[in-house]
Nucleic acid binder design. Structure first.
Length: 496
RNA sequence: GCGAGAGUAGCUCAGCUGGUAGAGCACUACCUUGCCAAGGUAGCUGUCGCGGGUCCGAGUCCCGUCUCUCGCUCCA
């Protein structure tokens, strides 16, 4: 009996990573130095695609009378992150069981241990403790008298936590004394304002753009004279020091968000939440995302984040599974209340119509620009067979395509290159176009297919007679004759 | 962070048990053809991810490290 090992089919993601590199969509960051984990650079075509995605989002979200734009600073006052809950929730000490590799949050480790067992563990732990450490323990006992609180406090104390851990069994595999030392996982990047590195001037790179909007709520509202309901939109980079990165652009440490926070009267939250859900999924649909690859994933009530009353994700079906590309949350008045509390500045809004003051509720639509980029790229990727040959084509929506049209002289003689150049000059002040005269025309079509260019304009023999060109559509590969004079309008209509 | 696999030209890869690197495509120039890629001729391209070690000699063996992919874990 012989085993035939089938050659592993390359995953779509691998194909896309290599296509992205070959065509100049995405490169690995610092590649010549071996790369930096989870960091990627957008190349010539990638930056166009990303820019187009952001532009379409910006148009859809801010070209309306109830949404204003904003571009807040990446560095913010450290108190912002205390108010937002990021400092408290973002820095849990974790331990791993070396035996079975299970990871635990140290602060919740005690929850699953029975009281009787806890007593036993502590007794054994006290027995083996050095005199010096016993003093530490004493001071803890002075503050905490309850067993559970004592247990937790010991685990929170860096000096003696490990001694207690070595008496605890892993609840999964039962092994004792195999826990790693507690390590802090702070997901925020830390840096310093000014040249001196000290605790006092520590600041964080924002882990989300939303807080920049919350703290500017009143500035924007009063300067733009907006009345509720209204929103503030922002596109910008955010940073999270993730434990590990994954899946190409999907989980990275530096990423770009497209966020809109919509401020509403608390009694109308449900209505606005539903409306924005609908608008946001339609945005993806209208830009050509396949329906079967899109879905809402509602967060069950018991899994909601600390700030949310209702939450749903718009997910795209990647090869690795459904992945969130946008979150829509009803954040209630959590954020503004917290900022009011921490800053001491009122965040209330006076509603002229109702003659009442209240802290607005916030409906948030938080889209990942980088994740959308990846979803649009994956969604556009098609392998087709044309006359027995494989054709790779990126079927971007024309609005997203990095290059809108390519211009080819059929042959490099009889004045065709000159006419092609003329057309390029005319179109290029309106659209991003590309002139290519290298190689057989069929090959040039294919090259543009891989770039996702929706239209190819060819100058041929007939052009010399009647000033018309052929326009070849990317997906159908069908051609249409258009006169050079009306070419610009013809194309512009295609991008509406 | 753990486990598995991978890293050789811009891309896809070959290189058997160690003897200082190859193919196809791409790219450049010229010729030829002329509407759905890969005709001809010539040419360019690599300290074999990085750093150590063993050896007379390392792409090949050993150790470390970085990066990517997959599976866990994590994802407020």
């Amino acid at each position: 009996m012989r085993f035939i090992i089938a050659q592993k089919e390359k995953s779509v993601i691998e194909k896309i990573v290599s296509l992205a590199k070959r065509k100049g969509f995405v490169f690995q960051s610092s590649e010549i130095y071996g790369g930096l984990n989870g960091c990627w650079d957008y190349g010539p075509l990638g930056v166009e695609l990303l820019k187009n995605i952001k532009e379409e989002w910006w148009k859809a979200m801010t070209y309306r009378d109830d949404v204003e734009g904003l571009d807040a600073s990446i560095l913010m006052h450290p108190k912002v992150w205390e108010a937002s809950g990021h400092i408290a929730n973002f820095s849990d000490p974790m331990i791993d069981c070396k035996q079975c590799k299970t990871r635990y949050r140290v602060d919740t480790l005690g929850d699953s241990i029975a009281e009787k067992k806890k007593k036993k563990i502590i007794a054994k732990f006290e027995e083996n403790l050095s005199a010096e450490k016993k003093d530490v323990l004493k001071s803890i006992y002075e503050i905490h008298t309850e067993l559970d609180a004592q247990f937790e406090a010991i685990l929170e104390n860096k000096e003696i936590a490990f001694d207690l851990l070595s008496e605890i069994n892993c609840s999964k595999c039962g092994t004792k004394g195999q826990f790693t030392e507690p390590r802090n996982f702070n997901l925020m990047f830390k840096t310093f304002v000014g040249p001196v590195e000290s605790e006092d001037n520590t600041v964080f790179l924002r882990p989300e753009t939303a807080q920049g909007i919350f703290v500017n709520f009143q500035n924007v509202q009063s300067s733009s004279r907006q009345k509720l309901p209204f929103g503030i939109a922002q596109i910008g980079k955010a940073f999270r020091n993730e434990i590990n990165t994954k899946n190409f652009l999907f989980r990275t440490r530096e990423f770009e968000q497209m966020e809109m926070q919509y401020f509403v009267n608390p009694t109308t939250d449900k209505k606005h939440y539903d409306e924005w859900k609908e608008r946001r999924i339609n945005w993806y649909k209208n830009l050509g995302m396949d329906l079967e690859n899109l879905r809402f994933h509602d967060h069950p009530a018991d899994k909601l984040a600390h700030y949310a009353k209702e939450a749903t994700d718009i997910e795209y079906k990647f090869e690795f599974g459904w992945g969130e590309i946008e979150g829509i949350h009803n954040r209630t008045d959590f954020d503004l209340s917290r900022h009011q509390e921490f800053s001491g500045k009122s965040q209330q809004y006076f509603d002229e119509e109702l003659k009442e003051k209240y802290i607005p509720y916030i409906i948030e639509t938080s889209a990942g620009a980088s994740r959308s980029f990846m979803a649009f790229l994956v969604n556009a990727y098609h392998e087709e067979e044309v006359n027995g040959e494989q054709r790779v084509v990126l079927k971007f929506h024309p609005k997203l395509a990095p290059i809108k049209a390519a211009i080819f002289p059929l042959v490099n003689k009889d004045g065709m290159p000159e006419i092609a150049k003329e057309i390029q000059d005319e179109l290029s002040s309106h659209l991003r176009v590309f002139l290519d005269s290298k190689g057989a025309v069929g090959r040039r079509y294919r090259r543009q297919d891989e770039n996702g260019t929706p239209f190819c304009i060819t100058v041929d023999n007939q052009t010399l007679e009647d000033r018309t060109v052929t326009v070849r559509e990317r997906d159908t590969m069908e051609q249409e004759r258009v006169s050079i004079n009306s070419l610009l309008m013809y194309l512009i209509n295609k991008f509406k």
